[in-house]
Amino acid sequence: MSAFDDRGRAQEAKFARDQDVLFRITARRNRLLGEWAAARMGLTPEETDAYAKAVVQADFEEAGDEDVIRKLAGDLTAANVEISDAEIRAALNDMTAEARRQFIDSEN
């Protein structure tokens, strides 16, 4: 029974680690998205930092990426930046890849 318990604990630890990694990558991706959108809106460095943090916080509203996409679309539109939903989703995909790369680099 001990081997079975050890295996269960190992699987739980792996799941917890995987969830932590996913959370860190998603938070980094959202920060990168915030910086990308801030550049499109012409924000100052201080405003960019605050905006990137706000985008990270926006992701806690609901599960999935739709809350972040809605925030970016609304803010960019309010700033008179012409952008499509497809462009935002493409940036989301690009920033996901970049966040993963940065995470892997930081682990080495």
Rank of each mutant, 00 (worst) to 15 (best):
E47N: 09
T44H: 04
A90M: 11
L72Q: 05
A52C: 04
R70S: 00
V68G: 04
L92S: 10
G74Y: 05
L43C: 09
R9V: 00
L43H: 06
I88M: 03
A91D: 13
V56S: 01
Q19T: 10
K53N: 07
L22M: 13
L33M: 14
K71W: 02
T77K: 13
F60Y: 11
E61L: 01
N80E: 14
I83E: 04
R24Q: 14
E82P: 00
A63S: 02
V81Y: 12
Q57A: 15
A10W: 05
A78S: 10
P45E: 10
V81W: 12
P45N: 12
A54G: 02
W36F: 14
E12S: 08
E35N: 12
L92R: 09
D20V: 03
E12A: 15
E66Y: 07
N93C: 12
I83N: 06
T44S: 15
N80S: 15
D49A: 15
A73K: 11
L76Q: 00
R17Y: 13
E82L: 07
I25W: 00
L22Y: 08
L92W: 13
A38G: 12
V56Q: 02
G42R: 12
A91I: 13
E87K: 03
K53I: 03
T77Q: 12
T26L: 10
R24N: 12
E12K: 13
K53Y: 01
R70L: 04
F23Q: 14
Y51M: 08
R28V: 03
T77F: 09
A27T: 14
